[in-house]
Design a protein around this nucleic acid. Structure first.
Lengths: 194, 194
DNA sequence: ATATAATCGGAACCTCGGTTCCGCTTCTGC
DNA sequence: GCAGAAGCGGAACCGAGGTTCCGATTATAT
């Protein structure tokens, strides 16, 4: 028997290398498939995309929802990173616009995020909280207000609300071309301007 | 034999009175249930709400989608009626605001409409076209532009896009209270103002 | 190279909700 | 009041998609 290796509290078992690799593959495939099909992406397709069997997906993420959570976490981390970056901008309003633009783009391009925001608000709320997104948003707002460029009554929770709205705007009503997210965002920013 | 009553081309068979009544009951129940649960309302619940069996629902509306269509039709008719009313307003901008406000409220209060707009755009597009809503919207926009109060580059298709966004705004992220539709609308109207 | 445990694959299983079916009930015309 | 047609109820059917299971496979320690 080995001295410490046997002590369960220390580090009894490493995850096998291939398992770790598969986990990544699943996550990556899930990202793509969910982005395209939204919440009703199918596990089978995700598994196929990752080149593994469904069983493997389930070993790493016991439930579709847990897979969802992992993905949401990643997304919100990226969002938070971008928010921190925007806080560095010289101009407060400028930083605010940058962040809104990034968020709107992500929202418009990823069906998962926009659908999860209103059908799984619990998951998104949790992910958002864990990365401190609301607080970062509040700071961005304060800076922009300080510049006198942002409506004084803007609240932190207005941001997810408005951004989420952009994500859900009708896609291609038959006949007329749908509104683009850029245009939608432009109107909202105009409305938020002091 | 009666003169014309017997000729099949004329009016061979009336719908039975109770059937007509049931049809109305189903429609009414469906309106409520769909408004609350959105697209994934269940037929069983609708039937129960109407005090009939599922079979009856299916005789009147062979498919969940057809029931949806009927409901959408009603909604869009109401919308069109309101648009016509708004066209009577003295002030063009005023009429536009009235219509936007009504649309936003309906959208926010009825899960069905907002979900159908982006998950069943075909149905909504058809309903919208059949009541000439896009054209009415265009007229409202023209009038408001004529007053010089509405952004000159506003397009008819911007309206469904923006309104739809209001309907989908996150509902209650845990912690902070969600944005209300009134506020969302206010910001958008500010952004659309010339 | 071998033993052993961690992983894997994917067929089978289960649940949920839309849809069908058919014997029974309720109108309507005579 | 009766016959026949029109409608009704709701149990049963079915397909879809998430989840489980277990024999086969593969990494890792020795």
């Amino acid at each position: 028997m080995q001295p410490a290796a046997a002590i369960s509290a220390t580090k009894p078992r490493q995850q096998r290398a291939d398992a770790r690799r598969n986990r990544e593959a699943v996550l990556e495939s899930a990202r793509k498939v969910f982005a395209e099909h939204g919440l009703d992406a199918q596990i089978d397709e995700i598994a196929a995309g990752a080149g593994v069997g469904v069983g493997t997906v389930y070993r790493h993420f016991p439930t579709k929802d847990e897979l969802l959570e992992a993905l949401a976490q990643l997304r919100f981390e990226a969002l938070a990173a971008r928010a921190r970056e925007a806080l560095e901008a010289r101009d407060g309003w400028q930083g605010f616009v940058e962040f809104m633009t990034y968020s709107a783009r992500v929202m418009a391009e990823d069906r998962l995020l926009s659908e999860a925001m209103d059908q799984r608000s619990a998951i998104c709320g949790e992910a958002s909280r864990s990365v401190g997104l609301l607080d970062l948003t509040a700071q961005l707002i304060e800076r922009a207000k300080a510049d006198g460029k942002l409506r004084a009554d803007t609240e932190p929770c207005d941001v997810p609300g408005l951004i989420c709205g952009i994500g859900r705007a009708v896609r291609s009503a038959p006949g007329a071309p749908a509104m683009t997210w850029e245009r939608h965002l432009e109107i909202i920013l105009a409305g938020l301007r002091a």
